[in-house]
Design a protein around this nucleic acid. Structure first.
Lengths: 248, 248
DNA sequence: CGGGGGGTTGATCTCCTTCAATCAACGTGG
DNA sequence: CCACGTTGATTGAAGGAGATCAACCCCCCG
């Protein structure tokens, strides 16, 4: 079930790519050692479901690489994405036994997992973990509220621009990019997933992406590779603060 | 500036109405004493702004009584409510110096406040506070995600029904009510505030409230007092799980 | 070659917004 | 006590942004 082959590469926490951003970020070496003893890796393929809403969930963990989505579904099939899980993001809630959302890997993904009980034990004994988790949760709450504004008040065009600028900004911070020149990146989501994120239909997403291309706010190579010649222009389209893109 | 008159009534933490739900819920008597030493009360009148987004914020605190809203505003004036602060809810973020949202009291309100520095000190020394804050933040995150589904995917009618059922449920848990018989409560929000919450215009809110009344999902006395004869019917209208309203 | 997943584009429809008039309740000052 | 302004709410008519339904394209893969 679990492929162990090339997972052993990331076995040492000190070399872990998310060492300084994940829930373990504040841990000292000794604390890291304790986590190392109870952690295990799981790998998921693109499209694979990590867990279904309502299912028993006896583990928590961090995304090490790849991308997953958190979605909610109504009985009649309408779905809304409520979170995008990027490397270092945390999955699962201490103190809850069942999953509240569907979690689906949209790319190949590796997670660093802990069984719930031992992790909760650690949390109680190690303030650094709880501190970091609080910090991360507050950040997620801010992101969720930002998204409420997008969902509730922005037009389709603004929604697309908002999503693109979020992805662009993340890519720029994660990989080396500067934000004043042109920025380019790959969309990690299908049109349908974008629609689920933005509360739109996939047709509207397609149309608005085309419109932004026609108006030269973005350029496309293939369907997925996006280049933004002028970031401040994109932010303007998103309806965000237009202080010239100087986001310092 | 601060009216001290009838605030002294709630001076003793042990008698505090939110003692077991607020950020201090897990504190032992001795810890409570320490908090008591640094707390102070602030009162706000209906309509008064507690703090503006972007302003310096040197305190945090809990809503003791009354209701406040958390809203985000775009430059062109569009606004989206991103949180509804009820008694026991926490305001402010440890580790951040400026407010991220506008906070406005919609009714007369009393807050139990702490200056930021002493509170953060306490948090570092008292795991019970940080634990409780994490728990509360995770709950808020769930609520925000629930709201993302409402904003992104529900119709106007479903949005109204969702808001009503949330308020009904809260009122039933806070005050004594059972959920199988008729439930009735006062709307703590104007039509405009409801619209800001739901990502609608106030006209649409008004129309849909009238429609729900016409269809006898609710009855109204005056503009603000709502009675729900059949809670499961309302939940059905909200597009939520229809397991007969047996929410056990 | 057929098929399917992902994407684009077009035509039509509809739900919600927009603009505007009206109303009830309330307070205030002449 | 009544005219007046204000605030919150309701209702109507018209228009538009996005949904819906449907055809079609492209590309990869078995």
């Amino acid at each position: 079930m679990l492929k162990q082959d090339n997972l052993s590469v990331t076995q040492d926490c000190h070399d872990c790519p998310i060492r300084h951003r994940a829930v373990c970020a504040r841990c000292e070496s000794d604390e890291l050692g304790l986590l190392e003893d109870i952690k295990y890796y799981r790998r998921f393929e693109a499209g694979q479901t990590v867990i279904w809403s309502g299912d028993r969930m006896d583990f928590v963990g961090s995304v090490v690489s790849g991308i997953a989505t958190l979605t909610q579904t109504m009985e009649d099939g309408r779905t809304q994405m409520v979170g995008l899980l990027l490397p270092s993001d945390f999955v699962g809630r201490p103190g809850r036994g069942t999953a509240a959302y569907d979690v689906v890997a949209t790319t190949d993904m590796v997670m660093c997992c802990f069984r719930k009980a031992p992790f909760e034990d650690m949390m109680n004994r190690t303030p650094h973990i709880a501190q970091r988790l609080l910090e991360m949760t507050l950040d997620e709450l801010d992101a969720a509220r930002e998204w409420m504004l997008v969902l509730g008040r922005k037009t389709a065009r603004e929604k697309i621009a908002s999503l693109l600028s979020i992805i662009a900004r993340r890519d720029a911070t994660l990989n080396l990019g500067a934000l004043d020149g042109p920025v380019s990146f790959d969309l990690p989501l299908t049109r349908e997933a974008m629609a689920d994120y933005l509360g739109l239909t996939l047709e509207t997403v397609s149309r608005q992406v085309s419109a932004l291309k026609k108006d030269q706010v973005i350029t496309l190579e293939g369907k997925r590779h996006v280049t933004v010649p002028d970031m401040s222009r994109l932010l303007e389209e998103a309806g965000d603060d237009t202080d010239g893109g100087m986001l310092v």
